Simulated scan of single mutants.
Amino acid sequence: MAIPQNLFWERFLSPVVKFLIDEAGLERYALSIDWDKQSARFQRADVLIPTYYSNHKFRSIEGGYLNPKVVVSYDPIMQYLLPPNEYLVRQALIDAIQVKPRRILDLGCGTGSTTLMLKQAFPQAEVIGLDLSAYMLVLADNKATNAGLDIIWRHGNAQKTAFGDAAFDLVTASLLFREIPTTVCQAIVQECFRVLVAGGQVLLLDVNQKALRQLEWLNDAIEEPYLREYAAFNLDKSMEQAGFATLPTQDVWWIHQITSGVKPLAKKDVAIHKQVRQYVSKSTDNGDLEDLGSPVFGIRT
């Protein structure tokens, strides 16, 4: 019998994570920030928060990503929940890029871990991180400032980004689709197609759908209300329906996957793009997310 998701976290995973991080220290850090004042720099009145998001819980904490307690605990917790190593998993997305982008959009950027890595890989590109939580953007901006990276943070919904058609060469999303209804997934994929230039690439990093279908315990270990819905969702088909030419789905340490697609070129553009622009990975020296400027790293027991 499957263990209810909240019980699996509370009984098995939560005690381990609590041992590894300093919850009291994180709470003190959260209380040291004027969240209303800081989030006002990013808050957009025209952004409506959907109920699936406002009702979301992160590791059994009410309010989800609209709760400052969750925001400051997200990075320290996630480093233990992305085996074998958070940096390696996120770096796999960077290594899968096959274009040399001038403008990059990172959807559901959260605290900006992948966004910062994208900027490091493409320092000349304009990089924009978009998220529904203005609180998340506060921490993401702090990380970028500490790392000396110039990144634009935008409060918004990945379904309707408000950017113009063909505005980006690369669109990414990390650990987003498993947390949302599949109807929203499809809408986001379609939005990715709209905002990409012809020849542009989309990259989606998330839990391995094949593994979720084969191993029931993974659905319990990863506490997400839409996880089973996501596991049954055909992401490759979704990409094709949106108009993408899909690339082979890549397994990342078996428990993760990268789904990728390219917006096809119009016939008139084919002659201009005869050569595929390949990207050579520029990993950081020590492969450690702590060097990306998160102020909450180092707050440990």
Rank of each mutant, 00 (worst) to 15 (best):
A231V: 10
E23W: 05
A231G: 07
R228L: 13
Y52M: 01
I77W: 15
E240H: 11
L175K: 01
R41V: 11
T51I: 01
D46L: 04
L247M: 08
I61P: 09
G156Y: 01
Y279S: 13
Q91D: 15
R41G: 04
T172D: 01
G156L: 07
I61S: 13
L227E: 12
V71F: 07
K263D: 10
M1R: 13
L118S: 02
V71H: 05
R44M: 00
Y80D: 02
P264L: 08
Y74C: 08
D46N: 07
L7A: 08
D22P: 08
P68Q: 06
I188C: 10
K268P: 00
D165W: 00
I152H: 12
A231K: 04
Q124C: 11
L247G: 04
F12D: 02
L118N: 03
I97A: 00
Q257V: 10
K263H: 14
A166M: 01
A242R: 03
S14Q: 15
R277I: 12
D75E: 05
L170W: 00
I151T: 00
Q159M: 09
I94E: 03
L130V: 06
L93R: 03
D220G: 13
K267Y: 03
Q190M: 12
W253Y: 14
R300E: 15
R300Q: 15
S113M: 05
E223A: 13
M117A: 00
V252A: 05
F19H: 08
D75S: 00
V262M: 14
P248C: 08
R28W: 07
R213M: 10
Q5I: 09
A144E: 13
F177N: 11
N67D: 14
D131R: 10
T246H: 04
L235T: 05
W253E: 04
L247S: 04
K263A: 14
D220K: 11
K37F: 15
T183F: 08
P68N: 01
T259D: 11
I299C: 07
L130G: 01
A125W: 12
V276H: 05
Q250D: 00
E223V: 14
I180Y: 08
